[in-house]
Amino acid sequence: EKFPEHWLNLMEQHQITLWNTAPPVMSMFLEYALHTPGVIERFRKLKLRCVMLSGDFISLTIPKHLHAMLPNCEVISMGGATEASIWSCWHRISRERHYQGSIPYGRALANQSLHVLSREDLRPVPILVEGEIMIGGVGLAAGYHNDVVKTDKAFVWSEHLRQQVYRTGDLGRIHPNGEVEILGRADFQLKINGYRIEIGDVEAALRAAEGVDEACVVPVGNGARKRLIGFLKCKDEVSAATIASSALASCKKRLPAYSQPSKIHLLDTGIDGLDAAEGEAARLETGREGSWPLSANGKVDRKMLKQFHADHEDGGADGAGLGGGGGFG
């Protein structure tokens, strides 16, 4: 079930000590705990000793709230791929460390290896230079069953490493301390009017805006009509007008004009909408206030986000965006 009340009842009943889900599921649970009368006291009494999060972007607010309410609970970021035994790297999220923008992908687990290589010749790239994250080690699969073409494309031999590695399709870079930072998906790169755009960069610019908790960006349209649509999950008690101004300023500061979202939608968080003079912010009803729509595996359902935009594009599309005249751009 996707209902936090049910999860809380089960965790109390069975004295659960270990949590393991995609980050949006924990985000939904925290929203329920923080905004439902009487629940936060129950949450603080949970026996959780370890929260493991993997498979999607981890908002900085998730470990912040967990550390505040459950001071004895470890929060760990896990990463990897099914083709390399599910998990290949990890990072213990520190209470004291001030994270800039995102949680590190981390370091390789025992008997596995994590590399950032050039996509062309599979050569290790210098520190802080973007490349593709690739995985090696004893956890590597032999390939895809009865699919030689797909296997040969994903499982490749690196002459520079002298070993076989799996191409994750994730872009990243290595920091001087040896930690790998994930920058986004290679297949999240796209071209709009001839310009290459990294969706992860656009999402990072939106997250940096005042009043924004989490952000998700999806491409819509084809050819010359292709554009980016942003979705924001907002912090408490922040007006839509403030979010509009902040998000616009953040995008203009960090992004070239061609990569800025053409329209922004807000999750349904109960925040007051813009007044008539400024336009009206469309709200995405997800079934749980302030939560992302989730796919079956607990990740953000980007197809549903695209459908929501399509449903609000006709008959008042200009009013659906934040800011006057139909959003940013």
Results as ranks from 00 to 15, higher is better:
Arg227Ile: 00
Leu30Asp: 14
His65Cys: 15
Gly324Gln: 12
Arg167Lys: 12
Asp275Leu: 09
Phe231Arg: 11
Val51Asn: 01
Ala186Leu: 08
Arg288Val: 14
Arg288Gly: 09
Val212Lys: 14
Met26Cys: 06
Ala84Trp: 00
Lys2Gly: 13
Glu41Gln: 15
Asn146Arg: 14
Asp187Thr: 03
His6Ser: 11
Thr286Gly: 09
His67Tyr: 04
Arg95Asp: 07
Thr286Trp: 06
Ile182Arg: 14
Val218Pro: 11
Leu46Ile: 13
Ser102Ile: 12
Gly324Pro: 05
Phe155Cys: 03
Glu1Ile: 01
Asn222Gln: 00
Leu128Ala: 13
Val138Arg: 10
Ala22Asp: 01
Gly172Met: 10
Lys191Pro: 10
Leu34Pro: 04
Gln260Pro: 10
Lys299Gln: 01
Ala241Thr: 01
Gln260Phe: 08
Ile199Arg: 02
Asp311Gly: 12
Ser259Gln: 05
Arg119Gly: 05
Glu120Arg: 11
Gly223His: 01
Ile135Thr: 15
Val75Thr: 11
Lys303Ala: 10
Phe328Glu: 13
Leu46Gly: 07
Arg225Thr: 02
Glu74Cys: 02
Lys64Trp: 03
Ala281Gly: 14
Arg123Val: 14
Leu66Asn: 01
Ala296Glu: 14
Asn20Ser: 12
Gly316Ala: 04
Tyr105Lys: 02
Asp236Glu: 15
Val138Met: 10
Glu237Gly: 05
Leu140His: 02
Val300Trp: 03
Phe57Gly: 01
Ala108Ile: 09
Gly319Trp: 09
Arg283Gly: 05
Arg162His: 10
Phe3Cys: 13
Met304Gln: 14
Ala208Glu: 00
Ala154Cys: 08
Ala241Trp: 12
Ile197Val: 05
Gly316Gln: 00
Pro23Met: 06
Leu18Asn: 02
His98Ile: 04
Glu181Val: 12
Ala224His: 00
Glu278Pro: 12
Gly319Phe: 08
Met78Gln: 07
Ser246Pro: 14
Gly319Ser: 10
His265Arg: 11
Ile182Asn: 07
Met52Gly: 01
Ile133Cys: 11
Pro261Phe: 06
His91Cys: 04
His115Asp: 12
Arg207Tyr: 01
Lys306Met: 11
Asp318Ala: 14
Pro63Phe: 05
Lys253Glu: 07
Ile76Asn: 03
Gly221Met: 07
